[in-house]
Simulated assay, not measured.
Amino acid sequence: MKAVILAGGLGTRIAEESDTKPKPMVEIGGRPLLWHIMKIYAHHGINDFVICLGYKGYVIKEFFFNYYRHMSDMRIDLSTGDHQILNSHAEDWRITLVDTGADTLTGGRLKRAAKYLDDETFCLTYGDGLSDADIGAELAFHRRHGKLATVLAVQPPGRFGVLNLDADHHVTSFEEKPSDEIGWINGGFFILEPKAIDYIADDLTSWERAPLMNIARDGQLAAHQHTGFWQPCDTLRDKRELEDLWNSGKAPWRVWD
């Protein structure tokens, strides 16, 4: 089974980092977000990846082309250029890197990558969201309902504390960052049948608009509700929060340990 990862966007809300690299290459704990996402999938037995490139896609190509060297101890003789790998930490992954255009939208990126998906059920997610979602349980749910698409439904982390007031304007309670303040949202980590791609018109199609809306209209979209950890990395604040979790040794998405 393959996992498609959308990794071509600009990441304008975290421009301090994405000026020099694609947002999925922003590092948490010294490893790109993209690596963390792939480790999540690999933990659930999915090791075949199709990565949709766009903005500064060459940075992602370079990372994986030299992954063996990035992740291993080396000895280099500068006088001769000879080098020796002392140990290897390479992953058992197969990766297809697809140039999907600098200005292509999310749906168009998926459509361009379709020829590499072998006409079988596949996963799809964004290159900037981390979760401890049980992909295996979601896949079982997808197979049970038999529809074209499953989306991971999540409750976003609250940004602000909420004051509960009585009729006299007294604060009766204070809730620190409630997670259910806007209900369920699209958390990525889709599972799709190949025919879902037929809903995408062209490069200028956003997956989150007409395709998903029309799949839902046709009764072909189901939601797998996830009440555990989920967080995107949209801003520097998000990055710092994720870094703090990683450095604490309690990162919820680190399911592979």
Score class of each variant (00 low, 15 high):
Ile135Gly: 07
Gly146Gln: 10
Phe122Trp: 02
His226Glu: 02
Lys147Pro: 09
Gly188Phe: 12
Leu110Gly: 14
Leu212Pro: 00
Leu163Arg: 12
Glu208Asn: 15
Glu175Arg: 07
Asp218Phe: 04
Pro157Trp: 12
Pro178Val: 11
Ser131His: 04
Asp166His: 09
Ala201Ile: 02
Asp180Trp: 14
Leu130Lys: 00
Val162Met: 12
Arg217Gln: 13
Pro211Cys: 03
Phe122Lys: 00
Gly187Pro: 00
Arg217Asp: 13
Asp99Asn: 15
Trp184Arg: 13
Pro211Gly: 02
Glu120Asp: 15
Gly101Val: 01
Asn214Gly: 05
Glu176Arg: 05
Ala153Arg: 11
Arg112Phe: 11
Ser206Glu: 13
Ser131Val: 07
Val171Tyr: 09
Gly107His: 05
Met213Glu: 07
Leu163Gly: 03
Gly129Thr: 02
Gly127Ser: 06
Trp207Ile: 15
Val162Gln: 09
Asp203Tyr: 12
Leu139Ile: 15
Gly183Cys: 13
Lys195Tyr: 07
Leu212Ala: 12
Asp134Leu: 07
Gly188Ile: 14
His226Gln: 03
Ala201Trp: 04
Asp203Ala: 15
Pro178Thr: 11
Pro211Asn: 04
Thr227Trp: 13
Asp180Tyr: 12
Thr227Leu: 14
Ala222Tyr: 07
Val171Arg: 14
Tyr126Trp: 04
Ile185Cys: 15
Asp198Ala: 09
Ile215Met: 05
His169Val: 02
Thr106Val: 13
His224Ser: 01
Leu152Asp: 02
His226Phe: 10
Pro156Cys: 08
Leu165Ile: 15
Ser179Thr: 12
Asn164Pro: 02
His224Ala: 00
Ala140Gly: 11
Lys177Asp: 08
His226Ile: 04
Glu208Pro: 08
Ala210Thr: 08
Glu176His: 06
Ala133Asp: 02
Tyr116Asn: 05
Thr227Ser: 09
Thr125Phe: 03
Leu130Ile: 01
Asn214Tyr: 02
Ala137Asp: 14
Arg159Ser: 07
Glu175Trp: 02
Leu139Ser: 03
Tyr199Val: 03
Leu139Arg: 10
Met213Gly: 10
Gln220Trp: 05
Thr205Trp: 13
Val151Tyr: 06
Gly158Asn: 03
Asp99Gly: 05
Ala216His: 03
Val162Phe: 07
His170Asp: 10
Thr205Gln: 14
Arg143Tyr: 11
Glu138Thr: 04
Ile200Glu: 08
Gly161Asp: 15
Asp132Lys: 09
Gly129Gln: 01
Phe122Cys: 00
Ile191Met: 05
Leu212Asn: 08
Ala216Asn: 06
Asp134Tyr: 06
Glu193Arg: 12
Ser179Gly: 10
Ile182His: 03
Ala216Gly: 05
Val162Leu: 11
Ala201Thr: 00
Ile197Pro: 01
Asn214Gln: 15
Asp128Cys: 03
Asp180Glu: 11
Ala102His: 06
Val162Cys: 09
